[in-house]
Simulated assay, not measured.
Amino acid sequence: MKNYLTQFKPFLIFICTFFAAYIGLTLLYKFYLNSFGPNDVDGITVTVGKNVEQLMQMFNCDIKVHKNRVDSWLEVWYNGKYYVRIVEGCNAVSVIVLFVSFVLAFSGKFKTTLSFILSGVLLIYILNVVRIALLIVLLFNFPEYKHFLHGTLFPLIIYGLVFLLWIFWVNKFSKYAK
């Protein structure tokens, strides 16, 4: 048994670190969400909504994003009519938690790891805001592709970016890179 533990030590350390980080960050986020009332929208989702609105207004889009009066989501009014909603799951925090957990599990030098995590989180956040803005425009113009756009293409884009960041991290900066 001791021989197996020695042989698989790097894998076991990776698994334990990944799950510890993932569970810890998920619980931290859950505590954050629990600080809001049942019909409130959390601050991260509100910020994402504001950033989507700002981005689209830069391109002279007729868009308004505001909180629904009774439920916990943001209404997106596009070209004068209520079109879609932004819910807590749209803020990419779960994707960011997954990204950070993986990078921590394959950590390298402290400064490099921290810099990569911060850069990656920022990149994921920006891509998510762009993703939501594009999704709004595409759903408006191609409503018949709603399931494909929302359920397949755009998740593929954001998870694809995370996967590419992981590959880059493991091959260039992690302690296993050499």
Rank of each mutant, 00 (worst) to 15 (best):
S72Y: 04
W73M: 11
E75W: 04
E75N: 15
N79E: 13
G80P: 08
K81V: 12
Y82C: 02
Y82P: 00
Y82G: 05
Y83M: 12
Y83P: 03
I86C: 04
G89I: 04
C90Y: 05
C90V: 05
A92D: 02
A92G: 04
A92N: 09
V93L: 10
S94E: 15
S94D: 12
I96P: 00
V97N: 08
V97K: 07
L98T: 05
F99G: 00
F99S: 02
V103K: 02
A105D: 08
K109H: 11
L114C: 02
S115M: 12
S115A: 12
F116L: 00
I117P: 03
L118K: 02
L118G: 06
V121F: 02
Y125N: 07
Y125R: 01
L127P: 00
N128D: 09
V130P: 01
R131Y: 06
I132S: 03
A133G: 14
L134A: 14
L135W: 10
I136N: 15
L138N: 13
L138F: 15
F140R: 09
N141K: 15
P143M: 12
P143T: 10
P143A: 13
K146C: 04
F148G: 05
F148P: 05
F148I: 12
H150K: 10
H150W: 00
T152D: 03
L153F: 11
F154W: 07
L156T: 09
I158A: 01
Y159L: 06
L161E: 09
L161G: 08
V162D: 04
L164S: 08
L164Q: 10
W166T: 06
F168D: 13
W169C: 09
W169E: 03
N171Q: 14
K172G: 09
F173H: 14
S174K: 11
